[in-house]
Design a protein around this nucleic acid. Structure first.
Lengths: 348, 348
DNA sequence: GACCTCCGATGAAACGATTTAGGCAACGAC
DNA sequence: GTCGTTGCCTAAATCGTTTCATCGGAGGTC
C-alpha cells in the first residue's frame, strides 16, 4: 500500500463526533465510558458501535484536565543499567498494576540535571505520585514537589526528617555482615572499595564495615578504603589495578565492594591479571544481582530484598495518595549475606 | 513539623491566579511562558515574580489539550531486566534529550496484555510517537496505532511490509558468525540453545546457524536445537541439565545460545556440575552485554550496536514526527563476533 | 385523571492553558 | 492635527472530557 501523501491527519474523533454518529448527546457518550450501568443497553451498544466505527481514542489530556488527576505513577531511577534498580522497578510495577495505575520509568542516569528535568515534567503532567532514588536525597526540589502537592516516596535512600515516606535497606548492617564474614574467614587486611563518597549507601556500608572491624579488635589502619569514581564495572577494574600497585605487605587479602558491579569489575581484573579468587583476593559484593552468581567466581554478596523494596515503596505511595490520614513512614529492610565461592574457597 | 491535617490541597495556582497576582491578563502570562520576547521586561519580571510567589506549575494536560500534542516519546521495552534493552533505551534517551523531548519507559515484561495496556494508555496520552520492541511484531494493535495517527518505530524486530520504520540487527548473519567461529574451532557437534520459537530473533539466529553449518558441509543432524521456554538465565541452566542428559556420542562439544542470559545460565550450570568451559563445552552467547566479559569464563558473544540501535530508532521516529515527506525505512545493523575464553581455550 | 417516582438522556458549565483578533497609547512624519 | 506605525496588552474562543442540574416520558397509585 502506497503512502497517501498529504492526506493530512483527520484529527481523531472526539466524544462529540461519537455522539453525533450515534445520535445521542455528548453526556451520554461520557456515561457509556464512565458509568455504563446508567445507560440502557440499546443506547450503550449504539454508542459503542459508533466508537468502533470512528476509531475513537479517549483523550487523556482532556480527561485529566477535567478530573484533575491522572492514572499514573512514575519511578525516577538512578541507573537503569544497574539490574538492582530494574528489579526494584519490577516490584513497583507489580504493585502499580494491581492498583490499576500505569507506571512510567524515567532514568536520571545519576545526573542531577536530568533528574530535575524529569521531575519538573512529571509534576507538570500531574502524575499521582513519584517514587525516586534521588541523586541527592536532600535536593530541595523534592520538598518543593511535596509542597505543591505531588507525593514523593524515596526509594533505597533515606533522609533526615520525616516529611517523606522512604523505603531502604539497613546499609550499616549490610556492611557489618560483609566484614564480619571476612573477619570470620581469617582476613587481617581488607579493602573497602566504594565511591563516590557522596552516595549515602557508600558511606553507610563503609561505616558498617568499620564497626565490624573495630569490634573484631583489628587495627583501623588495616581496613583500607579505596575510593572509586562511580559504582560501575569499569571503576571496579580500575580499583583492581590500584590494589596490585600496593606494596605486598600493605596489600589486602580481601575486598568488600560497595556494589556488585564494582565487585564484578574487580573480580575480572584480578583474574585476568593472573591472580586467583579467593586465593589471592577474596571478594564480597553488594546487592546480589542475578549476575553475581554467574560470575567468574560466584560472588559472595549482601542480598537486598529488591523487589519487596519496590513493592513496599509503591504501597506507601498509594497509601499517601489515597488516605488523607496518611502518616509518613520510614521502612528499613534487613539485608542478608549470601556466601559463595569468591570468599569460601581455600586460601593459598 | 507536624502534618497539617485536613488543610486540604489549595489546588495549585493556574495562569489565571498568576495573572491576577501580577495584575495583568491571562494572555500575557501565557506570552511570558511561550514568547517571552513579546512581553516588555518590566511586565515579564512582574509575572515571573508572581509565578514564583504562587508556586505556579504549568498544567501539561491543559497545554497539550489545547496544542494537540505532547512533548514526550515512549519506549515500550520487552524486558527491562535484560541489560541489552536498557542499553538500547539509553541510546533512545540520548536522542530524545537532544531533541528536547522526555522519554517514558514502559516494560511489557514479555506479556502481550501488559504491552497492550501500555500502548492504549500511551495513545490516550497522545505521546508524539512510540518506540517498541514488541512481543509480537505482527500484532494488529500496532497497525491500529499508525492508522489513528501515532507513529511507531519497531526496535530490534522486523516486520514484513513497510508501513513501519524499524531498526534491527542482521540476526541471520549473527547466527552465521557464531557457528562459523565454532566450525573453525573444530567442533563437529553443536547445540543451538534458544527459545521460544515465537521470537523472530531466535528463529533468525537459528537459521543463520543452520546456513553456516550446511555451508561447512556438516550433517544437519549434528546441529542440535535445544529449545528453551524463555531467554533467561534460569532457562539456560535448565538447558545445561538437559545437555548433560544426552548420551555421550550425541552430546555436543559446543553450544550457541540465542542470547547472553541463556549462555550465562548454561555456563553456570556447566561449571557447577564439574565440567569445564571450553574444554567440555564451548559456549557462544549473543548480545555481548557488559556481564558477558565478566562471566565465570569470559563469554564469546555476538555483539550488537545496542546504543546505536536505540539512537537510530529514535532518529527515525523524530523524522517521522517532524517531516511530512517521511519515508519509512528499515535499518539493518551488522553484528560482530567477539571471541573470548569460552571458545578460545584449549580443548581437553 | 392528577400526582408521584424512577429511569435514561440531555445540555451547559466547568477544567487550565493557548491563540487570535483586536484595542489602546505613544510616537513620528507630513 | 491627522494618519499610520509600532509595541504591549486584553478579551474571548477553543481544545475534549466530565459532571451536574434538569427534563421528558413511562408506569404505578389513589
Amino acid at each position: 500500500m502506497a503512502i497517501t501523501p498529504g492526506a493530512g491527519n483527520p484529527r481523531s474523533a472526539s466524544v462529540k463526533d461519537v455522539a453525533a454518529t450515534a445520535g445521542v448527546s455528548l453526556g451520554t457518550v461520557s456515561n457509556v465510558l464512565n458509568r455504563p450501568d446508567r445507560v440502557s443497553r440499546t443506547t450503550r451498544e449504539r454508542v459503542e458501535r459508533a466508537m468502533a466505527e470512528l476509531g475513537f481514542v479517549r483523550n487523556e489530556s482532556a480527561r485529566s484536565l477535567r478530573t484533575g488527576s491522572t492514572q499514573s505513577l512514575a519511578y525516577v531511577m538512578l541507573d537503569a543499567g544497574n539490574p538492582f534498580f530494574t528489579d526494584v522497578a519490577r516490584g513497583i510495577e507489580l504493585a502499580a498494576e494491581e492498583a490499576g495505575l500505569s507506571l512510567f520509568l524515567c532514568n536520571s542516569d545519576g545526573r542531577s540535571a536530568r533528574e530535575g528535568a524529569h521531575l519538573a515534567h512529571l509534576q507538570q503532567q500531574r502524575v499521582q505520585g513519584i517514587l525516586i532514588t534521588p541523586v541527592d536525597p536532600d535536593d530541595p526540589q523534592l520538598d518543593q514537589l511535596i509542597e505543591r502537592g505531588t507525593p514523593v516516596v524515596i526509594v533505597d535512600r533515606t533522609r533526615a526528617g520525616s516529611s517523606f515516606c522512604s523505603v531502604a535497606v539497613d546499609d550499616v548492617l549490610g556492611g557489618r555482615l560483609a566484614v564480619e564474614h571476612l573477619v570470620d574467614s581469617g582476613h587481617k587486611r581488607v579493602a573497602y572499595v566504594g565511591g563516590p563518597e557522596s552516595i549515602g549507601q557508600v558511606r553507610d556500608r563503609g561505616e558498617g564495615a568499620r564497626q565490624a572491624w573495630a569490634e573484631a579488635g583489628l587495627p583501623p589502619e588495616d581496613l583500607i578504603t579505596l575510593s572509586c569514581e562511580a559504582p560501575t564495572v569499569a571503576a571496579g577494574r580500575a580499583a583492581g589495578e590500584r590494589l596490585v600497585g600496593l606494596p605486598a605487605r600493605r596489600r589486602p587479602t580481601a575486598a568488600f565492594c560497595a556494589n556488585d558491579l564494582i565487585a564484578l569489575g574487580l573480580l575480572q581484573q584480578t583474574i585476568s591479571s593472573g591472580r586467583t579468587v579467593p586465593g589471592d583476593l577474596a571478594i564480597v559484593g553488594y546487592d546480589d544481582i542475578e549476575f553475581a552468581a554467574a560470575a567468574a567466581v560466584p560472588l559472595t554478596s549482601v542480598r537486598q530484598p529488591r523487589q519487596d523494596l519496590g513493592r513496599r515503596a509503591a504501597e506507601l505511595l498509594l497509601d499517601e495518595v489515597g488516605d488523607p490520614g496518611h502518616q509518613h513512614e520510614q521502612v528499613l529492610f534487613t539485608p542478608e549475606l549470601v556466601a559463595r565461592a569468591s570468599t569460601l574457597g581455600r586460601r593459598s
